[in-house]
Simulated assay, not measured.
Amino acid sequence: MSAPLNIAAWSGPRNLSTAMMYAFGARTDAAVWDEPFYAAYLEATGLDHPMREEIIAAGPRDAGEVAARCAAPHPSGRPVFYQKHMTHHMVPAMPRGWFGAVTHLFLIRHPARVLASYAQKRENPDLADIGFAQQAEIFAAIRAGGQDPVVVDSHDIRDDPAGMMDALCDRLGIARDPGMIRWPAGGHADDGVWASHWYDAVHGSTGFAGAEGPLPGLPADLQSVCDAALPHYEALKPFALKA
């Protein structure tokens, strides 16, 4: 068996993050965890998210417990442990001592595309909701700690899923798996309880969506959020992996 590889995949919402979790979930050597800190984040902040009470009840709510589990091998014994993390969950109350025990992957997407999608599910998003500033801060912290994190742009994945998955596997030091670009419709057994609200499109999918078209137009209120997020996206884009 290969040495355990714990992957902390960082993104904001509506950023191909669930599809990427499904891609890794399609590997026979991988286990996945959907937004480990979500319940602890809601309890710590008091924020009103869709399905808040159900998410907190499903737990775990102890951030220290979550961190310890993120740093440890998966209980299944599978050597690849893919963790889908939301950058905005890493509020000051969340521990970071576990960062050095995992390999970090950053999923980026142009903020205009993120906002056009997010606003369909939750009204009046602001910069904090979409996680761009937090993503750039976490990326800088990981680099300052001596790691060279992987960056992948969702545009590149949708443009060439097979090529990008091969390049990503090579960068992570795991075997290529052509099965990563296909998965069964209907969701994954390890989806979070919030899947019924957020994952309708990906539940209907059996692979990555096709190449993206032109950037969407945004109303003025969302455009101002996009303008604030864009420098954070552009700071990470030069590091993006290529097939």
Rank of each mutant, 00 (worst) to 15 (best):
88 H>R: 14
60 P>N: 07
107 L>K: 06
25 G>M: 06
99 F>S: 05
178 P>S: 13
126 D>L: 03
28 T>S: 15
119 A>Q: 13
38 Y>D: 02
145 G>W: 08
139 F>V: 03
199 Y>H: 14
212 E>N: 12
6 N>G: 14
163 G>D: 10
212 E>G: 04
202 V>I: 14
166 D>N: 13
28 T>P: 00
237 K>H: 14
223 Q>T: 11
87 T>K: 01
144 A>M: 07
73 P>K: 08
119 A>G: 02
104 H>M: 09
228 A>G: 08
194 W>H: 14
107 L>S: 07
77 G>Y: 06
192 G>H: 01
178 P>H: 09
104 H>C: 10
103 T>V: 07
172 L>R: 02
154 S>T: 07
21 M>Y: 08
67 A>P: 12
224 S>E: 15
154 S>N: 10
111 P>G: 11
171 R>D: 11
231 P>F: 10
215 L>D: 15
40 A>N: 04
19 A>C: 13
127 L>G: 05
73 P>D: 08
3 A>P: 00
176 R>F: 10
171 R>L: 09
154 S>L: 04
131 G>C: 04
136 A>N: 09
219 P>H: 07
181 I>N: 07
158 R>P: 06
163 G>H: 01
216 P>T: 03
207 G>I: 08
133 A>R: 15
205 S>A: 15
39 A>Q: 04
19 A>T: 08
189 A>K: 13
147 Q>C: 02
67 A>D: 10
19 A>F: 05
83 Q>P: 07
27 R>I: 08
132 F>N: 00
182 R>E: 12
85 H>M: 14
76 S>T: 15
85 H>E: 13
132 F>W: 09
22 Y>W: 06
179 G>H: 05
33 W>N: 05
5 L>H: 04
185 A>M: 12
239 F>L: 05
163 G>T: 07
196 S>K: 15
153 D>M: 04
163 G>M: 09
38 Y>S: 02
171 R>H: 11
65 E>H: 14
18 T>M: 04
150 V>S: 00
65 E>Q: 14
6 N>Y: 01
46 G>W: 05
230 L>K: 06
204 G>T: 03
153 D>C: 11
19 A>L: 06
146 G>V: 07
91 V>G: 09
76 S>I: 04
22 Y>Q: 05
187 G>Y: 09
50 P>L: 05
19 A>R: 02
225 V>F: 12
133 A>Q: 10
92 P>K: 03
186 G>Y: 12
126 D>F: 01
128 A>M: 06
34 D>L: 06
27 R>T: 08
134 Q>P: 00
151 V>P: 02
80 V>C: 01
62 D>A: 12
134 Q>K: 11
17 S>C: 10
213 G>A: 04
16 L>D: 04
22 Y>H: 11
130 I>A: 02
202 V>F: 02
104 H>N: 03
103 T>D: 03
190 D>L: 13
113 R>M: 07
26 A>I: 12
98 W>M: 12
76 S>C: 02
30 A>V: 05
203 H>G: 08
224 S>G: 10
222 L>Q: 06
45 T>N: 08
7 I>S: 06
96 R>I: 13
129 D>G: 05
108 I>V: 15
10 W>F: 14
159 D>H: 14
236 L>M: 04
122 R>A: 12
30 A>D: 01
152 V>M: 06
174 I>R: 00
200 D>H: 11
